[in-house]
Design a protein around this nucleic acid. Structure first.
Lengths: 338, 338
DNA sequence: ACAATGAAGGCGAACGTTCGGGTGAACGTT
DNA sequence: AACGTTCACCCGAACGTTCGCCTTCATTGT
C-alpha cells in the first residue's frame, strides 16, 4: 500500500514550506502565480489529499452526524430506512459531513450511547428518530445543548428542532376520500395510546370525521399493535356484524395492519373495494402488488431526510437554521382497495 | 455546552503529568497504587473520555469501515439493509470500529469515491456489496492492497476475502422440495445472464433438476428483470398452455418476481399451491402475508454481516483472518404457495 | 561507603493539519 | 540615504493523544 502523501512531501516536491502548501490549498495564501502552479502541480503529481482526521483534530470537529434507528423485528420491514439513510447521506456529503450509524439500545443504555459519542468527540450532532413522548434523548441533548434534529414530534411543551410528517393530514385525506366515495360508516384500526405518532394520525381521523359530520363510534376504534395479526383480529371484529350494521370502510394506521384487515375481510368472503374499503398508511413497496392493490398514504421520506440534515448542518455550524420545525405533507395513493 | 475534558485537565486534577494519565488508562504504567487511584478518581470526577479523533490521528487509523449500497428503486424494497447494517454495526462496535456509509454512485465515479475515502484517511477498510462480474472496485482494492471483504462473489479467477450465500443450494432445496411433492414439470423465472447472483441461483436449479432426472426445457427458463412486472409476464407465458402441457411448478429468483407470478396465475384462474406451485427467494417480510403465503428461501443476512466484519477486522489489524471465503447456507421456508 | 538496581513518574517528540505572526527583499517615497 | 509598504513566503505553535526515553530517589548488595 503506497504510503499516505502528506503536506510535507508535497512541500518538498514543490520546494516550499508545508504550511504554504496548506494555505494555497485553502485559498488564503499570498503567493506568486508560479509557486502556486508549482504547488498545484506537486499536489496533482503526488495525488495528495488532505488527511481528514488531522483536519478534524485541528478544527475540533468530527464532521459526523450520529444516527441510530430501531431495528425492526424479523417479520416487519423498515422500508423507510434505505430512503431515509440515502437522502441524509447525500445531503450530508454535500455539506462535508458523514453519517455515523450506531446500534440502537433501549433504556438507560441508550442515553449512555449518545453521551459517549459526544464525550469521545465522535459526532457533532445527531438525527434522532422513533421519538415518542418523554423521549430521554431529547431531554439529554437539550440539557447538554448539543445540536440535534428529531425526525418526529414529542411532548408539545418541548421546543426543539424537528422534522415530521403530518400524519393527521394523511388520515384527513383518507377519510375525505372515503366520504367523497359515499362512505358514511368508517372505522379505524389504531395504535396504543402511548404512541405519539398513532395519536397524531388518529387525531386526523377524528378531525375529518367531525368535519364531514360523521358519527365517531368508540367501538369502531380498535387500538393495538401495528402488526398483521392485530389488523386481522381487529378487522374480523369490525366486520363481524351484518352488512347494514358494520362499517363500510376501514382506515388503518399502517400498511401492515391494513394487510391484516385485507385478510380478515377476505376470510369473511367480502369483496374488498366493493363490500368494504380499506386504506393503509406508509405505502410499503409491496402494497401495490397486493390483491387488491392497497390504497394508502405515502410519506415524503426523502424530503424528510434532506430537511433533517439541512437543519442540523446549520445548527452544527452555529448558524441559525432557516427553519426549525418542518411539517411535511403526505399524499394519498389511490389504488383499488378503496 | 461543557468544554471537552482532556488528559491535561485530568492530570492537573490528579497532580501528575498528562502523559502519566494516558499510561494509566492504557494500563502500561509504572505507578504506585495511590497515584493510580488518584488518577482513576480524577478521570471519574471529571467524566473524562479520550478524544477518538486525537487517538485515531496518533494511531494513523480511522477505525472506520466504509460501506455503500445500491439504493433500491422506489417500488422495490431493500428489506435486507436493516438487518445487514445492524449486524455489521454490532460486530464492528464490539471490535472498536464504526461504519461509514456513503452514497452509491455508478461507473467511474464509484471507484473515485472509494479512492477518495482511502486517500483522505477516512476508512481502514471496506465491505462491498452488490458485487458482480468484473467489479471495478475489487480490481482497484486488490491493486491498492487495501483491506476489504465482499458480500458476494465475482469472477472465479479472482481471489479475495468474501462472504456469500449459497444461492445454488437455495434453489436446490426449492427444486428438491417440489420433486418430493411429485412435481415433474418445473419452470424457472430467472435473471439476465450478466447477473452473477442470478447465474449462481439458476445453476442450482439446473443441478437439482439433473439430479432429479427431470428434463430442463429451455422455453421454461424465463430470463428478465427481477421485477413484479417481469414475473407477471413470464408466468403468463409459462402458464398459457393447457393443464397437461404447462409446468406444474415455478421457481423465481426473488420474491418480487414470485409475487408477479402469483398475480398472473390468479388472473388465469389457477389456484396457487394446487394447480400451480410457486416458490420465491429472499423471504421478503411481506411474503408471509400474501395470499397465499409464499414459500421462499431465506438468507442468513445477519450472519453474513457478522462474518464480513469479523474477517475485515482481522485484515485491518494486519492479522490473518480465520476464514477467507465463507459460504452460508440459506433455508427453505415452507408456506402454502408450494 | 559506594555502585548497582529498580520503581515511579516526568519530559520531549510525533501524528498531519491550520493559523497567526514574523521576516527578508524589492520597491517607492521623501 | 533613510524609511515605510508590500509581496512572498517561512516558522512556531497548537489541537489531544501515545510512546520511548530520561531523571530522580530510595533500596539493596558487597
Amino acid at each position: 500500500m503506497s504510503q499516505k502523501v502528506t503536506l510535507k512531501q508535497v512541500a518538498v516536491h514543490a520546494g516550499v514550506s508545508y504550511q504554504t502548501v496548506s494555505k494555497v490549498l485553502n485559498g488564503q495564501a499570498q503567493v506568486s502565480k508560479e509557486t502556486r502552479d508549482r504547488i498545484i502541480k506537486a499536489v496533482h503529481d503526488l495525488g495528495y489529499r488532505p488527511n481528514q482526521i488531522a483536519r478534524n483534530m485541528r478544527a475540533k470537529r468530527s464532521h459526523m452526524i450520529g444516527y441510530s434507528w430501531v431495528p425492526t423485528s424479523p417479520n416487519q420491514v423498515n422500508h423507510i430506512l434505505d430512503q431515509f439513510l440515502s437522502s441524509m447521506l447525500q445531503e450530508a456529503a454535500a455539506a462535508g459531513y458523514h453519517l455515523l450509524p450506531f446500534p440502537f439500545r433501549e433504556g438507560q443504555a441508550q442515553v449512555d450511547d449518545y453521551r459517549e459519542l459526544i464525550n469521545t468527540g465522535r459526532v457533532d450532532g445527531f438525527v434522532i428518530s422513533s421519538v415518542n413522548y418523554n423521549d430521554p434523548r431529547i431531554a439529554f441533548l437539550l440539557e447538554r445543548k448539543f445540536p440535534f434534529v428529531a425526525f418526529g414530534r414529542s411532548n408539545p411543551e418541548l421546543d426543539f428542532p424537528n422534522v415530521d410528517i403530518d400524519g393527521a393530514n394523511g388520515l384527513c385525506q383518507a377519510v375525505e376520500y372515503l366520504i367523497s366515495r359515499q362512505h358514511r360508516r368508517i372505522a379505524a384500526i389504531a395504535w396504543p395510546e402511548d404512541s405519539r405518532v398513532g395519536n397524531d394520525r388518529l387525531g386526523g381521523f377524528f378531525e375529518a370525521m367531525k368535519a364531514g359530520g360523521l358519527e365517531i363510534r368508540p367501538e369502531w376504534i380498535e387500538r393495538g399493535e401495528g402488526t398483521f395479526e392485530f389488523g386481522c383480529q381487529a378487522a374480523a371484529r369490525l366486520l363481524g356484524s351484518s352488512a347494514s350494521e358494520r362499517p363500510t370502510a376501514i382506515v388503518a394506521l399502517n400498511d401492515t395492519q391494513a394487510i391484516g384487515a385485507l385478510h380478515a375481510a377476505r376470510q369473511l368472503g367480502l369483496e374488498i373495494g366493493q363490500d368494504v374499503a380499506i386504506i393503509g398508511f406508509d405505502d410499503a413497496p409491496m402494497s401495490q402488488y397486493l390483491f387488491p392493490p392497497l390504497t394508502t398514504v405515502r410519506q415524503p421520506i426523502q424530503e424528510a431526510g434532506r430537511e433533517c440534515v439541512e437543519i442540523l448542518v446549520a445548527l452544527m455550524k452555529g448558524t441559525q437554521p432557516l427553519k426549525r420545525n418542518v411539517l411535511l405533507q403526505p399524499e394519498l395513493i389511490r389504488r383499488t382497495s378503496a
